[in-house]
Write a protein that binds this DNA or RNA. Structure first.
Lengths: 204, 204
DNA sequence: AACAGAATCAACACCATGTTGATTACACTC
DNA sequence: GAGTGTAATCAACATGGTGTTGATTCTGTT
């Protein structure tokens, strides 16, 4: 159990290890795209990063830890992006903006997001990360629904539960579409937006 | 590559191997519930079924093949059940019936269905089985939507695409709820039904 | 120069998968 | 009921990937 991550904070000059760590994560992302999680071996990652397996285990405790770090890095982006988005008052605009942002996120990070979803069950840490991310989205959707006049509350037909279902709809639809093509993703986005609008009672 | 599955059709008296095969699948299902796919080893399955690893490899070519067979067995049930359901003309009734049936399916086979979904990416055969199953549902949902007056067609806001999104919403919502409890499942069902009804324009 | 800690690697131990070849149980023919 | 082919079984092996260890080299600091 290496103590790296605890005190890796600021440092004037970038440590050599930080470069290596980035190289490892980058390679991991590339290999994930090429061969998928199972087929990708620790040796592959090390080789891709230009070091030996042993050296890799100096930075990360296990294969899962590498992927978890990669997911964490990506998820950080999502949060950042979410915060940056201004909260619009008008529900219709808010929905359009949210969907637009989601398309961008999946276009950029679709691969890692899919991997995160796949590993949520088997790697508890990743499950944690992802469910936290989902909660952010669900909260946002809930707010929009309530502003659109949907009754607040936790009953099965009230804002909170509906937001949850809509969130899963978007996740899964984008998950599949992002495997296809950008066009599929765009089309999927339209469909989800449409259902969201209807559910909010904003169109008939 | 054993030739079992090709000519295993009818036989007056049940072969000993058929019993074993069932025992293997049953054990696999139990272990899946206990430890999950990764933690479950071929040795565990064999032991649970009362045979050695070698014997297991006589019946199945690999760990993945065992799980695939288990998924196939379960999915068979789904299809059967789907066929058995009478097609109602009245959309509201059709939707209620479909959701009711879906709750039952997830109550009975939630574990295997979750595993199927998880392994869809990594095990192509399972992906095939599951996507075929999903197509059945999507077709059924499409039919209901059209009967309720949603415009037919493949555009992003027409019946087919909407049905797909609704299907994924149901799949994912039930996937999560079935990990919680029967009550959660029931509540999730209400929410999904509600959104489906709204999307079909049957309630405001 | 000398020391500390960061970084590296070759070699090893371990465990799960899948394979092989030899052996036993079973059903069916004559 | 002896004989024969096929179904079923298993112990032993080969392979390959993971994670560990201990010794060694680099790099910055005083």
């Amino acid at each position: 159990m290496p103590s790296h991550h605890s005190a890796r904070s600021r440092r004037a000059t970038e440590r050599k290890g930080d470069v290596r760590e980035r190289a490892i994560l980058d390679t991991c992302e590339a290999l994930l795209a090429q061969k998928g999680y199972d087929a990708m071996t620790v040796g592959d990652i090390a080789q891709g990063a230009g070091i030996t397996r042993g050296a890799l285990y100096f930075y990360f405790g296990s294969k899962q830890e590498v992927v978890t770090a990669l997911v964490a890095r990506t998820v950080e982006h999502l949060w950042e992006r979410s915060r940056a988005t201004a909260q619009t008052d008008e529900p219709r605009q808010a929905i359009a903006a949210a969907m637009q942002r989601t398309v961008e996120l999946w276009n950029e990070h679709g691969l890692v997001m899919r991997t995160a979803i796949d590993l949520s069950l088997t790697v508890p840490e990743i499950g944690e990360l992802w469910s936290h991310t989902a909660d952010l989205f669900i909260t946002a959707i809930t707010a929009v629904l309530e502003r659109a006049g949907i009754q607040a509350g936790t009953g099965p037909e009230q804002a909170s539960a509906m937001a949850r279902a809509l969130c899963w709809m978007i996740e899964r639809t984008f998950y599949h579409a992002s495997q296809e093509s950008r066009e599929a993703l765009q089309k999927a986005s339209s469909t989800c937006e449409h259902i969201w609008l209807i559910s909010a009672g904003l169109i008939t």
